[in-house]
């Protein structure tokens, strides 16, 4: 770590790290305020397929977190940025609640396919439409590739199976935009003007947050809240830069060890 440069940015996961459903992690609001007093940029990064930024922000503000909308970077934002970079018009297979994050994007006469989680749209007709577009050269963009998620009535299929099916049908590879993709983290850092070596990622998911962040060149801090289960730190190689009890301890470490006084 001797060659490490001074820390310039901190990326923070939301669900499981700052809050669990509608409850804040104890001390997280104060810890965030302390972090903001240091000379580092802060950004909040999350994988979501159905919640637009506005919904995420509303929940966090109700829990008294001091957060601005432009500080939130989600897998939906990453997909939107990619669409804008490539100047393509997407067929959006995402839930209506996520459409807000794509407002202003031209979706007429589509020449790209974006797969989020959209049970209502995942019918034979719509998937055939997506298939036809991809065969004609449209890029396949996946918000993420989760196998399934937990619903009140049991487990339900996530976007991953549908992405995998379309990959098989068209013999192509989807561009996955969410965590743990390297490009997701690089994109989150882009407007902060710092390199991955100058950033740290804090999260409760060993693979998606810590492993992904470290693969991109950042330091990764695993917090033992949210989905964390004993032994998770052993599931990735290299191991997390640091594992600590919860978000406030992560902030303490950053302030004491990583931030250099100006």
């Amino acid at each position: 770590m001797a060659t490490r440069r001074a820390l310039k940015a901190v990326l923070i996961d939301l669900s499981g790290t700052l809050h669990i459903e509608d409850t804040a992690v104890p001390g997280a609001q104060e810890a965030l305020a302390r972090l903001r007093s240091a000379p580092v940029a802060v950004k909040f990064v999350t994988n979501t397929t159905k919640e637009c930024k506005r919904n995420l922000l509303e929940r966090l503000r109700k829990l008294n977190f001091d957060i601005q909308e432009q500080e939130i970077f989600t897998s939906l934002t990453a997909a939107r940025n990619l669409l804008e970079q490539r100047k393509v018009r997407p067929l959006l297979l995402v839930e209506d609640s996520a459409l807000e994050d794509f407002s202003g994007i031209d979706t007429s006469d589509p020449n790209a396919v974006v797969i989020g989680l959209a049970p209502d749209h995942f019918n034979y007709e719509m998937l055939n439409k997506a298939f036809g577009l991809i065969l004609d050269g449209a890029p396949l963009i996946a918000i993420h590739k989760a196998r399934y998620y937990k619903r009140k009535d049991g487990l339900a299929l996530g976007p991953g199976p549908f992405v995998t099916g379309l990959e098989y049908a068209t013999d192509t590879q989807a561009t996955v935009v969410g965590k743990p993709e390297k490009t997701f983290f690089l994109e989150a850092l882009r407007d902060l003007g710092c390199s991955p070596e100058e950033a740290v990622m804090i999260g409760d998911d060993a693979r998606d947050d810590v492993g992904g962040g470290q693969s991109a060149g950042m330091r990764g801090i695993l917090v033992q809240t949210g989905k964390y289960r004993a032994g998770d730190e052993g599931k990735i190689n290299p191991a997390p830069y640091l594992t600590c009890q919860s978000f406030p301890q992560a902030v303490d470490h950053i302030l004491q060890t990583l931030v250099q006084p100006e």
């Binding site: 034979y124 196998r147 199976p161 549908f162 995998t164 099916g165 098989y168």
Partner: peptide, 13 residues
Amino acid sequence: LDVGVYMKALEYA
């Protein structure tokens, strides 16, 4: 789309 696509989806899931 043929059955193989849905076979792959269920295999992955």
